[in-house]
Structures are given as C-alpha cells and as structure tokens.
C-alpha cells in the first residue's frame, strides 16, 4: 500500500473568515502536505517500511535518532498535517469548550487562559520550523510541548498529540507574515475544533489509518 493525501475535511475557502486564507490552505495541503506524502512513498522500499503503520514508522524513526531523520521528516510531517486539518474547523476556537476537555484542561493545566498562554509560548519559542502540541502524557495528563521540523511527540516518546499547530512559516506567512504570535492567537481563538480535540482525548489520540 502507499500513503495518500487525505482530503481536507472542509472547503479550502472555509477557514478564510477565521484567519487562514484559501491560498494558504491550498498550498499547505495540496503542495506541502502532498510533497511529504510523495517523498514518504519514495522511501518505503529503500527504508524497509512496507506493511508498517504510519504511527509505527514515526515512532521507530524517532527512536533511531539522527539515522531516522530522513524517514521522520516525511512520515512525521504526513502524520502532523493529517492531524492538523482535523483539529481546525470554521468558527472554531472560542472559550466555551465541550465539558470533558474543559474539565481536563482545568484540572491538568490550570484552565483555558493558562493553556492558551502555554500553547502560544510553545509555538513562539520553537525557533525555526516545527510544531506546538497539546498531548496526553504517559500518565494520562494533558501537557503542552513543542518539537522541531517534522518531529512530533510520538517520535520523541513524550506522549499522544490531541492538538497541534504548525509553526513552519508556510502555515502562516501569507496571512500573518512574520508575526507568529498573532497566528497562534488566531488559531486558538478562531480555528481549534474542540469537539475533535475532546474526541481524540477520549479515543487516546488519532489513528491515521494509513500504512506503507
């Protein structure tokens, strides 16, 4: 089997009123994400990935350290973007979260404002390209973290992502130019699909359903 580019779960113009324009989504999904899928498929044979799930490939590549980077760059980015599309929605964000995720954020992270600040801080301080994450750690607690480039908390073994924000400049440069803090603020205020995040929390994370 080969990896495939999942369709966007909404129209490419659907997030424009929420701070992510159509050009950004079309390029990000149709060009950037697609390039990761193509590159990953090109590695299946030479890296012996056949039959493995995307999640297994990411975890193994992460454990392999520097030797795993060529695979992690593409596999991690395929997984990361697959999650990213799902955790956004038109008219997302807001301050009224579904009850279970709200309670979990309250108990584990000190409430929504504290979470937002920590998540923004993680994204802003990820120097260069990378991702900001909300994860479930090994003890089942919510935690905010960040990873560089194509890595993610599955690769680092830190936990299971249930929300991720892409802080590669391609994610926000057309909409926010150099001002990454505003992109992250907008992501939290207007784009996060909290119903999906809650559902991922209850399911123990995203299963991509993809394998090599």
């Amino acid at each position: 089997m080969a990896f495939t580019l999942p369709a966007l779960p909404y129209d490419a113009a659907a997030l424009a009123a929420s701070g992510m324009c159509q050009e950004t989504l079309e390029l990000h999904h149709g060009k950037h994400h697609n390039a990761y899928v193509t590159a990953l498929n090109g590695l299946i044979e030479s890296k012996g990935l056949a039959g493995k799930s995307l999640e297994t490939i990411v975890a193994e590549a992460g454990r392999a350290g520097a030797d795993g980077l060529p695979v992690l760059n593409q596999a991690g980015q395929h997984w990361n973007h697959t999650l990213f599309w799902q955790v956004m929605t038109p008219n997302g964000g807001g301050d009224s979260l579904p009850a279970k995720i709200a309670a979990k954020i309250e108990s584990d992270l000190g409430g929504l404002p504290a979470f937002k600040e920590a998540f923004k801080q993680a994204g802003v301080t990820q120097f260069g390209s990378g991702w900001a994450w909300l994860i479930l750690d090994a003890s089942g607690k919510l935690k905010v973290t960040k990873t560089p480039n194509g890595s993610n908390p599955i690769a680092t073994g830190e936990g299971t992502p249930i929300l991720g924000a892409d802080v590669w400049e391609h994610a926000y440069y057309l909409d926010f130019r150099n001002v990454r803090p505003n992109y992250l603020q907008n992501f939290l205020d207007k784009l996060v699909n909290w119903e999906m995040v809650e559902s991922l929390m209850e399911k123990g994370g995203m299963a991509s359903g993809q394998s090599a």
Binding site: E23, G30, F176
Partner: peptide, 25 residues
C-alpha cells in the same frame, strides 16, 4: 491536484499589503 492560481496569489498579496501594516506590523 490543485494548481495555485497565480492571479489569486497576487491579488491575495496585494490585499494583504493594504491591510497588513496596521494589523500586523
């Protein structure tokens, strides 16, 4: 496969150029 419309990208850029300085800079 999506082919970015050069025109729409340029227009997007121009529109941003008008609105960004106040909002972002």
């Amino acid at each position: 496969m999506f082919q970015p419309a050069r025109r729409s990208l340029l227009l997007g850029g121009a529109a941003l150029a008008l609105t960004m300085p106040r909002r972002v800079f």
